[in-house]
Structures are given as C-alpha cells and as structure tokens.
Amino acid sequence: MRFFGLKSCDTCRKALKTLAAAGHAPTVIDVRADGVSDADRAAIIAAFGDASINRASTTWRGLSDAEKTADPATLLAAHPTLMKRPVIEADDQWTLGWKADVQAKYLGD
C-alpha cells in the first residue's frame, strides 16, 4: 500500500493513524517533500481525471486564472500540493480522499 499525502494535512494524518490502527503499514509519499513520479502522476490522472485537483486548496486559490485552465497533468507537475489527498494505491487499485467509501475499503467497515 502506498499513501500519497502531505505531512501537514489533517485528513492525511487522521487517515494514516486509522490505517495503522487497522494493521496497515503504508509507504508514505509526501507530495511536497518527496514529489510524485511521472508514472504515478499519470496513473492518478488516469484514475481520477479532473477530480485529482483540489480546487479548495490554498495553492489553487493562489493560481492565476490562466494557470487554472491548464490540464491536470500540467498542474500537478508544477504544483504537486494541488493533488486532492490522500491518494492510496493498493493492489493496483487507486482511491482518492478519505470519505466513508474509502474507509470501508481499507478498514472493512
């Protein structure tokens, strides 16, 4: 299991703590500190498309109108913190966010 997130993200911290309590030991990739590989970025965009961009983030609000029109691949390459988080990859399947459906998938609830 690989976990893409930010160390400073409250949702990511909560998700990691919950996953650890359930017996998972994900490999954590901090998108700011570690970056996201081209292959992983392409897989995330293939799985989620435009939904992979967090339009509620401070980073998004700081972009110019011209920058906001760029495609998700360009945006995430230039600003990895724009990625909606967490993104979890397990058994070649990807999930986005930490809502009830994702929690049920990994926690068995």
Score class of each variant (00 low, 15 high):
residue 83 M to E: 08
residue 61 R to C: 07
residue 83 M to T: 11
residue 51 A to W: 05
residue 53 I to T: 00
residue 84 K to N: 08
residue 70 A to V: 07
residue 67 E to P: 04
residue 55 R to P: 01
residue 62 G to D: 09
residue 56 A to L: 13
residue 79 H to A: 14
residue 71 D to P: 00
residue 81 T to L: 14
residue 82 L to Y: 08
residue 76 L to F: 05
residue 63 L to Y: 03
residue 67 E to R: 11
residue 72 P to I: 01
residue 68 K to W: 00
residue 55 R to W: 04
residue 79 H to T: 04
residue 69 T to K: 14
residue 57 S to I: 00
residue 84 K to L: 07
residue 79 H to L: 11
residue 77 A to C: 13
residue 72 P to K: 05
residue 61 R to Q: 12
residue 81 T to C: 13
residue 67 E to G: 07
residue 68 K to Q: 09
residue 66 A to Y: 02
residue 60 W to M: 01
residue 64 S to P: 01
residue 70 A to I: 08
residue 72 P to R: 10
residue 51 A to F: 09
residue 71 D to C: 13
residue 62 G to H: 10
residue 74 T to R: 08
residue 60 W to V: 00
residue 79 H to F: 11
residue 72 P to N: 14
residue 82 L to W: 03
residue 66 A to E: 13
residue 66 A to K: 12
residue 55 R to C: 06
residue 56 A to I: 15
residue 67 E to S: 06
residue 78 A to W: 01
residue 68 K to H: 01
residue 56 A to T: 14
residue 69 T to D: 14
residue 76 L to D: 11
residue 79 H to S: 12
residue 71 D to I: 13
residue 65 D to R: 13
residue 53 I to S: 11
residue 85 R to A: 08
residue 82 L to K: 01
residue 52 S to Y: 03
residue 57 S to Q: 09
residue 69 T to M: 15
residue 73 A to L: 10
residue 65 D to Y: 11
residue 70 A to P: 04
residue 82 L to H: 01
residue 73 A to N: 10
residue 76 L to P: 00
residue 56 A to Y: 06
residue 55 R to E: 03
residue 51 A to T: 14
residue 82 L to P: 01
residue 55 R to K: 09
residue 53 I to A: 10
residue 53 I to N: 02
residue 71 D to A: 13
residue 72 P to A: 12
residue 82 L to E: 04
residue 52 S to N: 12
residue 77 A to P: 02
residue 60 W to G: 02
residue 80 P to G: 09
residue 72 P to C: 10
residue 68 K to V: 00
residue 77 A to Q: 15
residue 85 R to Y: 06
residue 62 G to Q: 00
residue 54 N to L: 07
residue 73 A to H: 11
residue 84 K to Y: 00
residue 70 A to L: 14
residue 63 L to C: 03
residue 85 R to N: 06
residue 78 A to P: 03
residue 85 R to V: 11
residue 73 A to K: 08
residue 64 S to V: 06
residue 85 R to L: 10
residue 85 R to P: 01
residue 74 T to C: 07
residue 71 D to M: 12
residue 73 A to G: 12
residue 70 A to K: 14
residue 74 T to I: 09
residue 85 R to W: 05
residue 74 T to P: 06
residue 60 W to D: 06
residue 61 R to W: 02
residue 74 T to E: 12
residue 83 M to P: 01
residue 69 T to W: 05
residue 66 A to D: 12
residue 56 A to N: 13
residue 53 I to K: 11
residue 74 T to Y: 01
residue 71 D to K: 04
residue 54 N to F: 05
residue 51 A to I: 12
residue 59 T to W: 00
residue 66 A to V: 06
residue 53 I to L: 03
residue 83 M to A: 12
residue 67 E to D: 11
residue 54 N to T: 08
residue 62 G to N: 04
